[in-house]
Design a protein around this nucleic acid. Structure first.
Lengths: 352, 352
DNA sequence: TTCGAATTTGTTCACGTGAACATTTAATTT
DNA sequence: AAATTAAATGTTCACGTGAACAAATTCGAA
């Protein structure tokens, strides 16, 4: 079975017309007589024609311009992982000469987001990979993208935008439950539990709320009620706040952001046998995890999210692949024993 | 900056020769005068020429034929996940019309592997994705592949074959440590620990040994010595074996294969508060995990391994991408709280 | 009818590569 | 020096698509 590939030429022959007519029917442009159209459409249906994407791509012969709009990794190292993922994919798809333009906005400054997003629009990218950090502004911006026919993929933050090619993220509420479950099963004493929010940026509020909701939901089901929430402002004195608790009072701490490294040693030195669970594999977090100050980190897989995003964008734009509307990545539980297997993934990739 | 793509035509112009000569230099075939060769090579180096893979692929215009050689999923459901991964990718790359031929060998029958691998060879695939299950036979087979210039990628089982495009797997010893760590931290009593091998197929021996090594290494470091190994044959009576232990004697059980579902309820009903850790998200395992009979499953990510394997093979064969020599996937810790995030990944994918 | 315009259909080129084929130049033999 | 062969270089086609362009057909009006 040689199974030759079916081309527009074959269709033209079968319908007894020229390739030009077939092309006009397929793309619905130009004038075609009723008779010819019917003939061609019949053949098309019979034969289930699939265009050769390779040839299409060659023909189009365009370099993709992709915009990346994320919070600045300089201000919050959390976003570094996204960059790492992007760069990894950029190298892998170097042959397609894709032009990825980076736009970093200040996550403490809404107006900066507006400015940056305007810059993105005036750059007219072929596609967009974006963290819709500020709810209202993001919705407005993405609406503009839709009307300008700039396709986009969102990641990290979830927005209910049916217009996006794909939304990549994680079930935050469930990740809160995972943290709760770990603490519940590991703790040695039935003392209080603390939830720490690092509320430097109000826009994370939704994120953190979801995680807290999951965490509390879990303990509510177990009828464990002594769960307390602490909102830390960057101006707050952590020692002062911790001094309100006695050392034999807290058996578990859950930090809802990637900032657990900021309190890890304080927690461990103050509370006996206290279980600390935080988020994300920042270098400082990894160090604390390895030294035992942090017990578990939940990996939001930002790097994978970004990689997936870029890949999907290219697949869609260059090869017209269909994408899933949503993609939830695994809620990865990371301990000092499996941390290396998560870090190794980022290992450098030989370039051609 | 329009940054036009550099083609062989440009190189020909710059070196003041014809495209034919450029082509001969690049591919080192045909006769080229010393002078012309030098000129072209200089331009090539100066300009860092990268061929257009899209055009190459169109030109080559071939359908890939990829062979998949794995143990039969009908005999051991563990391998179903590999199939799921393959099928997912097959749909995603449907446009490239890749012909994936499945060969399932009997994992209890070495001679069957020999037969199947011969079939694979006579089918002359463009590439091969293989689980090198039987050590000696696999080495022989893969050597044949190398001499027949059939490139291959291995997964699941690790073989030191520098010839493979890429070896995909997991650090088994470390996964044993992960299991040990979970049990160590979760168990309520300092009773004995049991390691269960399901030794139905001798070829898994290496796998299981590695996992046991990691597990024991961990507890040795903690100076915990009461760790016992039980080799279960399929003919063995499990109840009989368990009767050797009193109910207040065992605080943790580690099953080194995907077969933990076979003893989960027996363990939980016999031993008080015993922690059970096993491998892989088989349906039965998932059920036990959700019901609480199994505490943790370590996901070997067979599905991801297979997906990655197919993707890499296509990238290499079709687009000539460079691959990493080895790829170790994360050692995923799965509990009843994050299991869904691992199952959702397999969600069906809309086809174009 | 016969011309002109509108409509419909057919042909050709470009995308970049690889390879077959054709042509020109150099080296060797008679 | 002419003829023959070998070496080196140049030209062209195919891959499949999309679109510009050219050609052919139809129709209405004079």
């Amino acid at each position: 079975m040689p199974e030759k590939r079916i081309t527009t030429k074959d269709i033209a022959r079968l319908a007894n017309v020229s390739r030009g007519t077939v092309d006009r029917v397929i793309h619905g442009r130009g004038k075609v007589s009723e008779g010819a159209r019917t003939k061609v459409e019949k053949v098309l249906k019979d034969i289930n024609y699939q265009p050769n994407v390779i040839a299409q791509t060659l023909r189009a012969n365009r370099k993709l311009k992709i915009a990346l709009l994320i919070p600045s990794p300089d201000e919050d190292p959390y976003w570094m992982a996204a960059l790492a993922g992007i760069n990894l994919e950029r190298d892998k798809v170097a042959q397609f000469e894709i032009d990825i333009r980076h736009f970093y906005f200040n996550q403490d400054d809404v107006s900066n987001f507006a400015t940056l997003s305007d810059e993105v629009l005036s750059d007219r990218p072929d596609g967009l990979l974006v963290v819709p950090f500020f709810y209202k502004e993001s919705v407005a911006f993405l609406d503009k993208c839709t009307s300008l026919k700039i396709p986009y993929i969102t990641f990290n933050t979830h927005l209910d935008t049916a217009q996006s090619l794909c939304a990549i993220g994680q079930d935050l509420c469930q990740s809160g439950r995972v943290a709760a479950n770990l603490i519940h099963r590991l703790r040695r004493k039935e003392w209080s539990l603390l939830i720490f929010h690092f509320d430097e940026d109000i826009s994370n509020a939704l994120h953190m709320q979801e995680k807290e909701r999951g965490f509390r939901e879990y303990f509510d089901e177990k009828e464990i009620r002594d769960v307390y929430t602490i909102n830390l402002k960057s101006t707050d004195n952590i020692d002062e706040i911790l001094s309100e608790f006695s050392s034999e009072n807290v058996s578990g701490v859950f930090v809802t952001t990637s900032k657990s490294y900021k309190i890890a040693d304080k927690i461990k030195s103050k509370f006996d046998d206290c279980i600390l669970v935080g988020y994300d594999l920042l270098r400082e977090n990894v160090n604390h995890l390895k030294s035992g100050n942090i017990d578990f980190l939940i990996n939001q897989n930002l790097e994978i999210q970004a990689r997936q995003g870029i890949n999907y964008l290219i697949d869609s734009l260059l090869f017209k692949r269909q994408l899933p509307q949503k993609e939830f990545l695994p809620i990865a539980i990371v301990s000092r024993e499996n941390i290396d297997s998560y870090l190794l993934m980022n290992e450098s990739y030989p370039i051609q």
